[in-house]
Design a protein around this nucleic acid. Structure first.
Lengths: 359, 359
DNA sequence: TTGTACGCGTTATCAA
DNA sequence: TTGATAACGCGTACAA
């Protein structure tokens, strides 16, 4: 808790000016002897630069914030890990903001950026970037990268998943297993992922030549409890279904609970597919086939985008789309031992099926 | 990306001195009229204070760092969430440092504190605070709270779990179910939790009047894979065991995999208990009875300890011990519906058994 | 090569 | 009540 030496202290001790000290410390060309004197004094005093003062001068804090909707959501864990790794390697520190999914809070974070305590922000709003964000994002005084969908044409660095292709992948897989009455357990249609998945589901049915039956669709929430409730409702209404496409792993876990409770065998009677491919998918029993939306990869991409922009602010806004994959596990017939990923291959098939790449 | 107005800009526009502006902005007593002029100018200019400059002056950044061993470890997720909530409410931001379990890296973080970019640190080293940390901890220029065991007598705020009581709780539970050949699947003895759990296991056996049999103990790692491997080895050596005490949920999940693979029914043939009570425990099938070491609570406690100290640096170092509990689920015979927590009650029993409270 | 002096944006002290 | 001014610790033109 000592008061801590500054370059002034060092200068006094070494009998030099603070300018010389600063130069040595920053590795600027200096006479050999001076270097030694400064280093010696710094060493003896246990000098450590004050990063706040430095930031004030440099206008760089070497800190980057990540605003996420909910720390408890496992999809974010993978993202945080990757982001942190990339940033750390580049000499940045990671600040975390958990907004609990409150859009107002998210806007607050964006506004707070103007306080200049970070050099940049990665934000991943659960419900997508709405009108209320957009102004804050585009007028922010530091670079912002959005993970998730943004309105068409928004001039901002953006990393997106492709749940449409993900759903096509999964539906194609189920169809290939001979399933024909495939139910959808979706999240709220008001959220970006909910809407996208609903549309992709319909599209897939069409492509597969299956009829759309609204009795096979139930909307709930992205949680396990609500997923279970939705599954119960759906199974009551459509007892004959032979597969469930779930809009998240948590929903799928809820569905598994209900199926087990009703004595229906998974995957024999009903095959189940989740989305997000979180840790939970491999832990569940039966282990869950799940669409991998590439969360980890998205985290990495977002961090890289941001670092690039910090190096060169004049870059045009870029959009990175991460390819989805399908992790096949027991809940659709794959074994835990035989769990395998189909990414490129399955994707090709699904896209051929879909007739083109339009994420 | 404008250059951003400062109090100087405001002062000019309002025809006042920067001192007056600062006073108004900080709510110090000022003439009504002046207040209005300043507020108006600030508003029109869209002024936002520069938190870096403020920090330089105040020597407070309103940032707190949390150094953890591995973001991917689910026990930390709960902690991060709670810490963030407490800090946010108190007006602090949370910085994350993932050290990947590297003690050297942890020391680096501690050293980095001297750069003054945070007001305090919460650190939770997986292997406990060793000799290499201790100097760094005690000489850090900002308050540090350690979550996890520290050498006796270290003058530092400290939050600890009580895995000893936790193990006693679990062993007592298993004994109560009639299990007599209870195996231990432990993590490395070189880690603090590993050592503590090994000791507690022996102690429990003694208290329960059961013999210690080294053939019933296998040491691996805290991961699922290594847990599975350890389980396989243990089951080969001691096929007759009727219960498994696992030093972490991940180990327990690995054990469940192996038991399923060998066709042994859980809990009928072998009852399984995990530790940490992570989300995974309730997702697994059969759902996993697990010792709750109170990670969320520990996070809260750590944050509070730190905030207290920031308010008053002269407080004596405090130690908070969080009580463990037992979440009984299917893997020892409880149902998912009947899952219940025994904390106080079971604790009392276990302690009566243990003959006193000595965490 | 080295030193002087100023600015980064605030807050706080002291006169006026 | 207000204004001039000095820090906070660092980096860097510019002058010596």
């Amino acid at each position: 808790m000592t008061e801590g030496p500054t370059i002034t202290t060092i200068a006094q001790r070494a009998g030099l000016s603070i300018a010389s000290v600063s130069r040595v410390l920053n590795g600027l060309p200096t006479r050999e002897d001076t270097v030694r004197r400064v280093m010696r004094a710094a060493d003896e005093l246990g000098y450590v630069p004050n990063s706040v003062a430095r930031s004030l001068r440099n206008r760089r804090t070497h800190q980057i914030a990540f605003a996420l909707s909910d720390i408890g959501n496992p999809v974010y864990v993978a993202m945080v890990r990757e982001i942190q790794a990339v940033l750390k390697a580049a000499g940045y520190r990671l600040l975390l903001h958990s907004t609990e999914g409150d859009p107002e809070d998210e806007v607050c974070v964006l506004r707070g950026l103007r306080e200049r305590y970070v050099d940049g922000l990665i934000i991943s709003p659960l419900r997508g970037v709405g009108a209320e964000h957009i102004e804050a994002v585009t007028t922010a005084r530091v670079p912002v990268v959005v993970v998730g969908p943004v309105p068409e044409g928004t001039p901002v660095d953006n990393v997106r998943g492709d749940s449409r292709t993900g759903v096509l992948l999964a539906m194609n897989h189920l169809h290939g297993l001979g399933r024909r009455r495939i139910g959808l357990l979706n999240g709220p249609l008001g959220t970006a992922p909910g809407a996208a998945r609903a549309a992709a589901y319909r599209e897939a049915l069409e492509l597969l030549g299956l009829p759309y039956d609204e009795n096979l669709v139930e909307v709930g929430d992205f949680t396990r409890d609500r997923g279970a409730r939705a599954a119960r409702a759906l199974l009551a209404r459509a007892p004959g279904l032979d597969a469930l496409m779930c809009a998240s792993d948590l929903i799928a876990l809820g569905a598994l609970d209900v199926l087990r409770e009703q004595g229906r065998d998974v995957p024999r009677d009903v095959a189940v597919v989740g989305m997000d491919d979180t840790d939970l998918a491999s832990v569940a029993w039966p282990s869950l086939t799940s669409v991998s939306l590439g969360w980890a990869e998205r985290g990495r991409a977002a961090a890289r985008l941001l670092l690039d922009r910090l190096r060169d602010g004049s870059l045009p806004p870029r959009v990175v789309t991460v390819e989805p994959g399908l992790m096949v596990r027991c809940s659709t017939g794959g074994g835990p031992a035989t769990a395998f990923a189909t990414r490129a291959r399955a994707r090709v098939r699904a896209l051929a099926l879909a007739g083109g790449d339009r994420p």
